[in-house]
Design a protein around this nucleic acid. Structure first.
Lengths: 173, 173
DNA sequence: TTTAAATTTCAGTAATTACTGAAATCGCGG
DNA sequence: CCGCGATTTCAGTAATTACTGAAATTTAAA
């Protein structure tokens, strides 16, 4: 796999963004590579193309699979794994948001619930602070619930909604 | 500033989430502390409460200010800076999203535009790959534009919309 | 000004996270 | 069940990022 300068630029940029998204550079680069690649690639091809260790590719692919962004295929008469990334950008976004919800939002909701429960028994924390925690919890739960609803909508509806932009306000009065 | 166990739990959890959000633990903890604190705090109080170096507090506060999440106030006859965090959770979310858009989305759009432009001149990158890059760009621009519209809506409208959940689909037909 | 508190900067170090390469394991074909 | 290619694991190390503490700078009161 020889990378064209254009593709290389994309992959490098993805790698640079990685830190801000809480994934390693390798994970981001491999994802970019597989997202752009016209055909599925073997782990060895990936390692060679990006010049990273084969084992690093293995671990990174596992992570990408845990996000449901990458899957394995096979070709007849070849027992190596071939990896491909989701190409549908809407689904890619959905997978990332689902993943982040699961890893960040849900545990945070749990912690806040614990804090609110603990607050009932706790007389040293000022009322105002307890309320702030409770408000935060309600807010996250509300946004979370909204996301679940949006998440379940058929894509054409979602697209229509998005294209309406702030005009939805008019319709709902 | 003595932390109650409940508050401490929140701050620690925030700190643990920090990595995933691409900020340092100190930044997240300081933000949590200021968000919950009933009154503005001095940098020294923060340093002492969280047991981190005073200089670390200084740098972290600068970062939080760059996100517009924290501001400085003063009390009469005291020349120290007092720091307070935004308490309105909607605004907090808006600041974080604005910040991430500015730091992650906008530069990515720029890179993708460059790639698409480069693609015109570039005959070695397969058409399919160029298209995927272009599609990605369009997608990000569309979502980005939608966000700007939503961002500008008055809060009550936004709240109403959110509470409708997937029922909006019915209204827009 | 001068002085001293408050804040910031930054070089050095600590802590964390990412990556490598060798060894272990897996799993299919013979 | 043996042998080999493919994959994974993991201990060690490299690279990165975060944090500290001392020194420099700023700020404002005297």
């Amino acid at each position: 796999m020889k990378l064209t300068p254009t593709v290389q630029r994309c992959i490098l940029h993805w790698g640079e963004m990685a830190g801000r998204w809480g994934v390693s550079r390798s994970v981001a680069q491999i994802h970019a590579l597989l997202f752009l690649a016209p055909q599925p690639l073997t782990a060895d091809e990936i390692a060679e193309t990006l010049t990273v260790a084969r084992s690093n590719v293995s671990v990174s692919l596992k992570e990408l699979q845990s996000w449901d962004l990458v899957s394995v295929t096979h070709v007849l008469g070849d027992r190596r794994d071939y990896f491909q990334a989701r190409k549908d950008i809407w689904e890619v976004l959905a997978m990332i948001m689902d993943g982040r919800k699961k890893r960040e939002i849900d545990p945070t909701v749990q912690t806040l619930r614990d804090c609110v429960a603990e607050g009932k028994r706790d007389h040293e924390t000022p009322q105002e602070v307890k309320e702030r925690i409770a408000t935060m919890l309600e807010f996250i739960e509300e946004v979370s619930g909204w996301y679940e609803q949006i998440r379940g909508m058929p894509r054409p509806t979602l697209l229509k909604l998005m294209r309406m932009g702030s005009k939805v306000a008019k319709v709902i009065g």
